[in-house]
Design a protein around this nucleic acid. Structure first.
Length: 364
DNA sequence: TAGGCGTGGGC
DNA sequence: TGCCCAAGCCT
C-alpha cells in the first residue's frame, strides 16, 4: 500500500520530540545493523526483519553479511547460495526478491541504492514501509514507516479504533503516522524517531501488559487515558489454517567413493517455483503413501518414520517421512540432486526437513 | 482486494 | 493445544 499524504485530525503535540529524546537515552543502539548508514546493511536488516523477531535475525545477519559484504557480491552470487544462507528464516520470497533487488541495484543504479523512498519502493521486496525505513535511517527523509510496532503505538496513542484489517483504515493510520513525524527534523532526528517508534513498541508498548508507567508519551496517550490501551489495535483476523498431511520420500544412498563424495547422501529436489518453500530443496513430497510407492516403484520397502507436526501461517502440516535406500545408480527422478549429510548446510532446505534429516544423520 | 507466504516465541 | 504476533510484500 502507498503511504498517503494528508490528514486533518486533531493530534497531540510534542510526541515526536519526546520520542526522540527517549530513544537517544533508552532506545536500542547496539544491534549489528545499527551504527551504519550504509543502505546495503540497512536494507538487508530491514528485509530480514520483515515479520521476523530481532532475536531470530541476530542468528542470520552477521553470517549473511560476511558472505555477501556488499550489493555486488550479493548480485553476483548463485541463487542457491542465497537461499542456503536464508534457510530457516522463512518467507523465502524475501530471499528471492533480495537477490533480484541486488541485481537491479547493480544493473539499473550502478550499484548505488536510490536515496528516495518512492524510488526504493519500486525495487523487488521493498514495500512502502521498508522504503521509508531505509530512506529515514540512511538519508533522513521525512517519511513514516508503518510496521506492527507503529500500528500498536499509534493506535493506542490516538485511540484509533477502526479495524486495520480494512486497507482503507490502514491507509488512514499511515496518514496519521506521517502527520506525527517531527515537524522540522534536524541532524539524525529521523533516524532516532523511526528507531524510537520501533523501540517503544518492542520494549514498552507490548501487545499485552504495556509498561505505561514508564512510557515517555504516556501523558499524551489517549488509550492510556481511557484506561484500556490493550484495546488497540483493532484487527479482526481472517486467515484460516488448513490441516494437510504430506508424505515425504526420504531416499538415501551410500555415496560413490569418488572424490569428495564419501558418506551417506539424501535425494533432494527443487520445490515448485510457486507456493510453499519455493526456491528451496526438499525431499519428494506426495499427498499420500500410495503416491509415494507409485512414483518410486524401484523401492521395494519403505520404513515409516514418526510423523512430524509443522505449522505455517496458513497450513497445519503433518509430515509423514518414508525412509528407504535407493537401489541402483539411476537418478530417482528427472530433477534433483544427491546431497551428502555433511553438505546439507550449504543447501536451502525447509526447517522441518532440515530437522528431520539431522535426526537421520549417519552415526547419529 | 484478500489471501499466500515460514518460523519461533509468548501466553 | 491453539491463537496471536514479529522492522510486510506480492499478486
Amino acid at each position: 500500500m502507498d503511504a498517503p499524504q494528508v490528514v486533518d485530525d486533531d493530534l497531540p503535540s510534542g510526541f515526536s520530540q519526546r520520542l526522540i529524546d527517549w530513544q537517544r537515552q533508552h532506545g536500542r543502539h547496539g544491534l549489528p545493523w545499527q551504527g551504519s548508514r550504509d543502505p546495503y546493511r540497512v536494507w538487508l536488516s530491514e528485509i530480514m526483519l520483515q515479520q521476523t523477531q530481532v532475536t531470530t535475525v541476530l542468528g542470520y545477519y552477521p553470517r549473511f553479511l560476511a558472505r555477501f559484504p556488499d550489493v555486488r557480491a550479493l548480485a553476483d552470487a548463485p541463487a542457491d547460495d542465497v537461499m542456503a544462507l536464508w534457510s530457516g528464516l522463512g518467507y523465502y520470497s524475501r530471499a528471492r526478491n533480495l537477490h533480484r533487488c541486488a541485481q537491479e541495484v547493480v544493473a539499473r543504479h550502478g550499484g548505488v541504492f536510490p536515496r528516495h523512498s518512492t524510488e526504493l519502493a519500486t525495487l523487488p521486496g521493498i514495500g512502502a514501509s521498508t522504503a521509508a525505513a531505509i530512506a529515514a535511517f540512511c538519508f533522513g527523509e521525512r517519511i513514516s514507516i508503518l510496521d506492527g510496532n507503529v500500528r500498536r503505538v499509534l493506535t493506542r496513542l490516538l485511540a484509533f479504533d477502526a479495524d486495520l484489517s480494512a486497507s482503507a483504515h490502514q491507509k488512514r493510520l499511515w496518514a496519521l503516522a506521517q502527520a506525527m513525524l517531527p515537524p522540522v527534523p534536524a541532524g539524525d532526528d529521523m533516524a532516532a524517531y523511526t528507531q524510537g517508534l520501533m523501540d517503544l513498541g518492542a520494549s514498552l508498548c507490548h501487545r499485552t501488559r504495556p509498561q505505561c508507567e514508564i512510557c515517555p508519551v504516556q501523558p499524551l496517550c489517549r488509550g492510556h487515558a481511557q484506561g484500556q490501551p490493550t484495546r488497540y489495535p483493532v484487527v479482526t483476523r481472517k486467515t484460516l489454517r488448513r490441516h494437510e498431511s504430506w508424505w515425504l520420500a526420504v531416499l538415501w544412498r551410500q555415496g560413490p567413493p569418488a572424490a569428495g563424495m564419501e558418506g551417506r547422501q539424501v535425494w533432494l529436489e527443487p520445490r515448485p517455483v510457486r507456493g510453499i518453500w519455493a526456491g528451496l530443496y526438499c525431499t519428494q513430497v506426495h499427498a499420500d503413501e500410495a503416491s509415494v510407492q507409485a512414483a518410486l516403484p524401484a523401492v521395494r520397502s519403505w520404513e515409516a518414520l514418526e510423523p512430524v507436526a509443522h505449522s505455517l501461517t496458513h497450513r497445519e502440516l503433518r509430515l509423514h517421512p518414508l525412509w528407504a535406500e535407493w537401489p541402483g545408480d539411476a537418478a530417482p527422478s528427472g530433477s534433483g540432486r544427491w546431497v551428502a549429510w555433511a553438505d546439507l548446510a550449504s543447501v536451502g532446505v525447509p526447517a522441518p526437513v532440515r530437522s528431520l534429516l539431522a535426526s537421520l544423520a549417519p552415526g547419529g
